[in-house]
Computed example of a mutant assay.
Amino acid sequence: MNNISRRIKTKREPLDLIEREVAEQVLIKQQSYQAIKSAETKKPRNLYELSITLNCEIAWLLSEKKKN
Rank of each mutant, 00 (worst) to 15 (best):
S51A: 15
S38F: 02
Y48I: 05
C56M: 11
S5M: 01
I4C: 03
K9F: 00
R6Q: 04
Q34H: 10
I36G: 11
S63W: 00
A39K: 03
K37M: 13
A35V: 01
I36P: 06
P44N: 08
L17K: 07
L15F: 08
Q34A: 15
T53H: 04
A35M: 10
N46R: 10
I8K: 09
I28V: 15
E49M: 06
I52V: 15
K67V: 04
I36Q: 07
L50W: 02
K37V: 13
A39Y: 00
K42W: 00
S38D: 04
L61A: 12
K11A: 14
R45E: 12
V26I: 08
V26F: 02
E64H: 00
K66F: 07
Q31T: 14
T53G: 08
E24R: 14
S51R: 06
M1C: 02
N55H: 15
A39P: 00
I52W: 01
K43P: 00
R20A: 15
L17C: 09
Y48K: 11
T53F: 03
I58F: 01
K9L: 02
K37T: 12
N3K: 05
L50E: 04
K43H: 09
D16W: 01
L54P: 13
R45H: 12
K66W: 06
C56D: 08
E49D: 11
C56Y: 09
I36W: 05
T53M: 08
P14C: 11
T10I: 05
L54A: 15
T10V: 04
W60F: 14
N68L: 10
I18G: 08
A35K: 13
L47I: 06
W60C: 12
I52D: 05
R6H: 02
Y48F: 06
L61Q: 09
R6I: 03
E19F: 03
A23M: 10
A39G: 07
K9E: 03
T41S: 15
S38G: 03
K43F: 07
W60M: 12
A23R: 07
E19Q: 15
M1V: 05
I28W: 03
R20L: 14
L47V: 05
K9C: 02
I18D: 10
K29S: 15
I8G: 13
L61C: 12
M1K: 02
I36E: 05
Q34Y: 08
N2C: 02
D16E: 07
S5C: 03
V26R: 03
Q25Y: 07
K67H: 01
E24T: 13
N55Y: 07
